[in-house]
Computed example of a mutant assay.
Amino acid sequence: MSGFRTLGCVSRSWWLESGVGSAFKTTGFGTEARHQRQPQGSSKWLGTPGNQPFPGLLQPECLSREKLVDVLRASVVDQKGPLVTLNKPQGLPVTGKPGELTLLSVLPELSQSLGLGERELQVVQASEKESSGLVLLSSCPQTASRLQKFFTQSRRAQRPIATYWAVTDGIPTTSEGKIQAALKLEHIDGVNLVVPVKSPSRKDILEGVKRTLSYFRVVATGSGCALVQLRPLTVFPSQLQVHMALQLCPVLGDHRYSTCVGTVLGQRFLLPAESIKPQRQVLDEALIRCLHLTPSQVAQLPLHLHLHCLHLPGTRPRDAPIELLAPLPPYFSRTLRCLGLRQQ
C-alpha cells in the first residue's frame, strides 16, 4: 500500500474505540483523519452520535433538494481536478424514477455548489442505495470514459479495485476465501429479488444469469458477528448481500436476503430464495442486547455495508496509483463498539 497516493480521509475515533485498529493497520488503512465540511444546521437531518441507536443515518424522504445538496457537499472527501469523491449516506438512491429525489437528480446543483460552473458532474462509480460509501464523480467526460475503461480492464484481469466493509450476523467458517455464484434477477410476488442459479446453462447466461465472484476476509469477530472485508470482482445488483447470505452470515441490516437463512436447533441452513418474501431481519435476543436496541429499532436497522476504498490509476502513466478512502458512518462505528469487535 505504501506505493499509493491517498486521497480522502479515514475517521480514527471508531477505530481506536472499537479495538480493531491493529487490524486496519495491517491492511494499510491507518491514515490520518481530515475533518469533513458540515453544512450549517445539518444535525437536524444527519443526527449526532450521543445515545441515538443509528447516529448519522440519513432520511432522504425528509429532505428538500437544497438540504440534500448541503448534505452531499458536506460528504465530499476529496476534490481534485475533474474528480469529486463523496461519502454517500446509506439509503440515498443514485438513480430513480423521474421526479424522485436522487443523487443524479441534484448533480447540477451540486456542481454549482462546488464551484464547477457549467461543468456538470456525472457518476463514474457509486455504492448502491442501501449501502454507504464512496461515490466517484467527474466533470470531464474524457476522464470518466478513461476510468470506466480502467474498471472494465480490471474486472477482466480479475484485479479488485473496490473494498467494502461489512458487519455480518454470524461468522464465516473460514477466515478468508472466495465466493462464486451464478445470479439472476427475478420478479417474485411483486418484488425484484436476486436469486442464485445452480449449474447455469449457456441459455441461462444468455437470458441474464451472471457468474459472480467476491473475495472475503474476516478482519475481526465479537458477539457472534464479524467485521468482513469484501472485494468484488464482478458487478451485479445486491451481489455482496447475496454472497454473504450464501455463507449463512447475512449482512447486519439486510432486510431482504437475510430471510434466506433459516435456523433449526442452532444450526443455520439456506432456504430457497424463491420460497420466501423479504421481511425485517430477525436477530437473536443476545445480539439485540449487545446492540442496545429495542425490537422496533431492529426493524429500522440500516444495512452495514460500506464502500470504503477505491484504487484508481494515476493521472499520468508514471504517476503512482491513487487510493480513495471514505470513513465509516457513525451508526456503523457505534455497532463496532457495541459488539466489542477484536482482531482475531
Rank of each mutant, 00 (worst) to 15 (best):
T6Y: 08
S13C: 10
S13E: 13
W15M: 15
L16R: 07
L16E: 08
L16M: 05
F24A: 09
F24P: 08
T26Y: 03
T27I: 15
Q36I: 01
R37D: 00
P39A: 12
S42H: 14
T48G: 01
P49V: 10
G50T: 04
Q52C: 07
P53K: 10
P55C: 07
G56D: 12
L58Q: 03
C62M: 03
D70L: 15
R73S: 06
V77K: 06
N87W: 05
G91L: 00
P93M: 09
V94S: 13
K97C: 01
G99A: 01
G99L: 02
E100R: 13
L101M: 15
L107T: 10
S111I: 02
L114V: 10
E118Q: 05
E118W: 00
R119F: 07
R119I: 03
L121G: 04
Q122K: 10
V123M: 09
V123R: 13
S127Q: 10
S131E: 05
L136G: 11
S138V: 03
S138G: 01
P141N: 05
Q142D: 06
A144D: 06
A144P: 07
L147T: 13
Q148T: 12
Q148W: 11
F150A: 09
T152K: 13
I161C: 10
A162Y: 06
T163G: 05
Y164P: 09
G170N: 13
T174E: 14
E176T: 07
A182C: 10
K184D: 11
L185K: 15
H187K: 11
H187M: 14
G190S: 07
V194Q: 07
P196H: 05
S201Y: 04
V209T: 14
V209A: 06
K210L: 13
R211P: 00
T212K: 04
L213M: 14
L213I: 10
F216S: 13
R217K: 14
G222P: 15
S223G: 06
V228Q: 01
V228I: 02
R231P: 10
R231S: 14
L233A: 09
T234V: 04
F236W: 03
P237Q: 09
Q247M: 10
Q247V: 00
L248N: 05
P250A: 02
P250K: 05
H255K: 05
Y257N: 04
C260A: 09
G266R: 05
R268P: 04
P272N: 08
E274S: 13
I276W: 14
P278V: 11
Q279F: 12
R280A: 04
Q281L: 01
R289G: 03
R289F: 09
R289V: 12
L291I: 01
P295Q: 03
Q297L: 01
V298P: 01
P302S: 07
L303C: 04
H304S: 07
H304T: 02
H306G: 03
L307P: 08
L310P: 00
L312P: 08
G314N: 10
R316S: 13
A320Q: 03
A320K: 01
P321W: 07
L325T: 07
P329V: 01
R334T: 04
